[in-house]
Design a protein around this nucleic acid. Structure first.
Lengths: 224, 224
DNA sequence: TATAATATAATTGTATACAATTAGGAGGTA
DNA sequence: TACCTCCTAATTGTATACAATTATATTATA
């Protein structure tokens, strides 16, 4: 288990810092599926009281990363092959709707962020920097969601945000995927810029389907 | 403000009871938009300590009903006409997908709950009991979501569940809506039972569109 | 009077103490 | 040995105390 310093784990209250730490750990599968997260153990390890720990656990529960059994504790949930696929099915319909709404509502700043993200992806694909590519990828889709100017889309984004991370990370493990994904995102951006809803929706949906295919491929070829 | 007894407000920890109470209040617009929810004031009113209050507020925040400003407090968010419409757009695509997945995965118990819910709606429409109708309506759609056997759909359901309440409540205020809605749900149920995905998706989407139309109508004809 | 600085009160954030519940083991019985 | 009961320890749930931050009011100054 990686050691962390609270100093550099997000900003804000202790609770939110702990939340970020634990979420990363779960995402990186540093905890076993079903493993119990003990409050005192965590508070001792992180050298704080149980109060912010409990706050973080509550937040994790609401994000669906752990489940809480009354008077028993919280347990990490984990995700199956099918869960990941379901999540991409949901993204398939949600992102189609999001880009449609975003074209009507997005402002210049958000549009520029999409462009920035796309350019960063191109740059990252050239130098083969997967981590940078992944970050830019997240930023790209996040900007579309925010472009809807809808508080519910923002909330849905928060909910599925970390699964986007997981799936994205796996999908770009395929050879030449960085390059092709960069092109796909450029096409999406251009369609949005042109205000062409039909084309934008089509490009986004195709992109998600391709991601879905690659992720499925990743899981099928990984032995465990 | 309606007085509540903690005894009958849900089951489980105090925090979840408080959450239910506060969620209902926000939903019933008993708090003004932007109003601050003071921790000590709430704890005095409900005769408990701040700890479960904070737990409930955290949960409300994650459900998107309040926003929290660090060291300032939490404030009720409220919803606009457009927010409601966006939520129904989201439901339009999500429920289409949900019913498709559910047809493949639903089990007998869940299918029976859909039937039960539909029958309850028919009964409620006959005697004109709006509250009972509303509850059955929620149960109906909830069962479809659960029929997907997907943890993410269950979570999405939790997230938008209360907006379903709001919109449903408003839509059935139209004359004869109970009857027509009952028919629509029967058609959806029959399509699911027959395993006809195409028809089921079509019926569900049409139903949501109609709800959307009626809710829009409700807001346009209400002066405020 | 209007504004700025400061002191005070109120409020949130965190730690800790206590209560209630659950888990696990010791010991007894068949 | 297998199983049950009871007791103890561990863990979660709740209350309260304290610290840090923010809001409010008061006073001073122009």
């Amino acid at each position: 288990m990686k050691k962390v310093s609270l100093e550099h784990a997000g900003h804000g209250s202790l609770g939110s810092k702990i939340f970020n730490i634990l979420r990363d750990r779960i995402l990186n599968e540093e905890y076993d599926k079903g493993q119990k997260l003990n409050e005192v153990a965590l508070s001792k390890e992180l050298h704080i009281s149980r109060t912010p720990i409990r706050e973080a656990l509550k937040q994790l529960e609401l994000e669906g990363l752990v489940r809480s059994e009354p008077n028993k504790g919280v347990f990490v949930i984990g995700f199956s092959h099918r869960d990941i696929n379901d999540m991409l099915e949901i993204r398939y319909v949600l992102e189609g709707l999001a880009v449609e709404l975003a074209i009507d509502r997005i402002n210049a700043v958000q549009l520029d962020k999409i462009k920035e993200a796309y350019l960063a992806m191109e740059e990252a694909s050239k130098i083969g920097n997967e981590e940078k590519f992944n970050d830019a990828n997240i930023a790209f889709h996040e900007s579309i969601y925010k472009g809807t100017q809808s508080q519910y889309f923002e909330q849905l984004l928060r909910d599925i945000n970390y699964y986007i991370h997981v799936t994205s990370r796996h999908s770009i493990k395929q050879p030449n995927r960085l390059e092709s994904a960069a092109v796909e995102h450029r096409e999406i951006y251009e369609a949005i810029l042109a205000g062409d809803k039909k084309r934008a929706v089509e490009k986004v949906k195709n992109h998600i389907r391709k991601t879905q295919f690659l992720v499925k491929h990743y899981y099928e070829n990984k032995e465990n």
